[in-house]
Design a binder for these strands. Sequence first.
DNA 1: TCCCAGTAGTAATTCGCATTAGCAGCTTGA
DNA 2: TCAAGCTGCTAATGCGAATTACTACTGGGA
Lengths: 341, 341
Amino acid sequence: MSQAPGRLTQRDIARLAGVSQTTVSLVLNNRGEAGARIAPETRDRVLQVIRETGYAADPLARRMLNQLNQILGVFTYEPVFPSTSADFYHPFLRGIEESAERSGCDLLLFTSAPVRDGQRRIFHEDNRLRVADGCVLLGREIPSAELSRLVAEDYPFVCVGRRDDADGRPVPYVGADYVNATAQLVERARSLGHRRFAFVGPGTGAESSADRLTGFRRAAGADAPFLSADAPDPAERLARLLEAGVTAVFAEVEAEAVALARAAAAQGLSVPRDLSMVTLGDPTIPVHSSLDFTGFHIPRPQMGQQAVELLVDVLHGQTSVTQRLLDCELTQGETLGPPAA
Amino acid sequence: MSQAPGRLTQRDIARLAGVSQTTVSLVLNNRGEAGARIAPETRDRVLQVIRETGYAADPLARRMLNQLNQILGVFTYEPVFPSTSADFYHPFLRGIEESAERSGCDLLLFTSAPVRDGQRRIFHEDNRLRVADGCVLLGREIPSAELSRLVAEDYPFVCVGRRDDADGRPVPYVGADYVNATAQLVERARSLGHRRFAFVGPGTGAESSADRLTGFRRAAGADAPFLSADAPDPAERLARLLEAGVTAVFAEVEAEAVALARAAAAQGLSVPRDLSMVTLGDPTIPVHSSLDFTGFHIPRPQMGQQAVELLVDVLHGQTSVTQRLLDCELTQGETLGPPAA
DNA sequence: TCCCAGTAGTAATTCGCATTAGCAGCTTGA
DNA sequence: TCAAGCTGCTAATGCGAATTACTACTGGGA
């Protein structure tokens, strides 16, 4: 019915060049020279028509035959261009874009995925994942059901951020080594003389949360206090920490660190003189604070970049290692100092 | 490669239910009741098998039939996710994304377009424009040669931002009415008592520049001073304006307004007491300034949104009006006041 | 003169699904 | 009794591109 006005097909090209559709296809796919049993003269004629018309193969038709289209999908669990959290997601996307450009691929944003229960879902009636050759997945938390299904269907994809196995099968990813970065920060605190550490934050749910807690526990000991930030009042949380004799606090979220620091200031305590404070990664939500926190940087652009590179390798069957962890750079900051004597 | 091994097809379902593929298709598509001449018994049997197997139609195959791929291209003349200028382009893209989501389309970013002469080009060897059903074009300045070719090829596209005709043929766009917004600001200044106005900025090149100058001239008179910001020294430009007796300056670019204001302050002049200053649109480059400029807002998200809507309409042959101008909202600000007596 | 090999192209088929045309078998109606 | 009209299903076709199988032609050697 709704006839696409100008969609050109190989038949059109064939007609214009006075050859068969097969010939057009051969010209396009044996571009090199090997095995192409097409006279140079003919090939040039066909290519000329293609150039003049700007013909490009229908990606759907090609995917029907399991061909690659140089199209990489990008699936985000939040809108790509939001006002909030833009600052956080952007660097990943910048890396993705950069890498896609280098490998000559176009990026397909799956904006068609409808939001359900406040989240986008990959799998829905009419999911168009297969339009892309493969897909990069971006999101703090990715429902494991979706991951399982992707793995089960053998769909080529790479997550940005480490992921747990899905149904016992490894999930391809390029992640940041939060475990190690967190552990290193604890060690740094220890070498400054701290002995009582505490972790404040969710610590569960997303892998990124769990990894930070894991790193903390590894270095601080399994019995070090772990405070989920549920308690409504920062002052109360601070009080509990001080009661426990904690001298160095590791906050998963920068916002929490800021809240605690403020509560401390309200009590006349100063950071880091009376209490050291470390944040575990770049803020997801922009926070206003004059404090230059000690912590680490997440190598976001690199993660995006390498995710695309890995995906391309996977698509070309050029790799068997599908999981990469990148180091985080520790930042000096000014919120970690020796404990009060 | 990416074909899931055990992927079910209607043929499989048909075999399992002991019917033909056609029947399966009919059962699935005439679900309602109209025209479906399938015995309830048969239909139930088919549905049963579908339920048991979890079969889902391949969306690619479906889309093959109704000619539209639901892929909208987005061509930007700069990278989409840069660190600089992100603030300016983002709102457009947010609108585009939002609208694409609503119309169930995916967005294809043409990251594969190579950069030549410091700019991306649509048309290059092997351009993949036609992979998408149509395309949204984003950029301050779009080479008219490219526009001409798009129009000539009858390729469905919509520009964000007004564009001049290409080779005498109208270019589809959703733009902002800079002419009117600028003229209104001049009128506002006039009603405050100003009589000598000046326009500072390129004023030519991109349509967006030209439109502002046009609006300015329309309201201020063709002989009002127009200063291209070429002169290297802001102080010098300021001097020239004051010499000419100008009391209200209309700066195309916020950065220029800031520079002039600074130069004025250096001479002990204050804005708006000694000199009124108006900026014509949101800053393209973030500028640090404590001044809250009088000017207007560009309805960027709306422009992006409507560009997609228009494109979709064009693709469905549902519209003949392919040019839209949106109003800009004037901002009060504090840099426009009555002229010094 | 005939056969084999090589060259340059085309017809036919495939992917998974929707749609159209059509084919049996069973009522009706006159 | 037979054409006309249903009912319930299937064969055939098409979407656009890739691939396989095949054909038509040209030379060269014996």
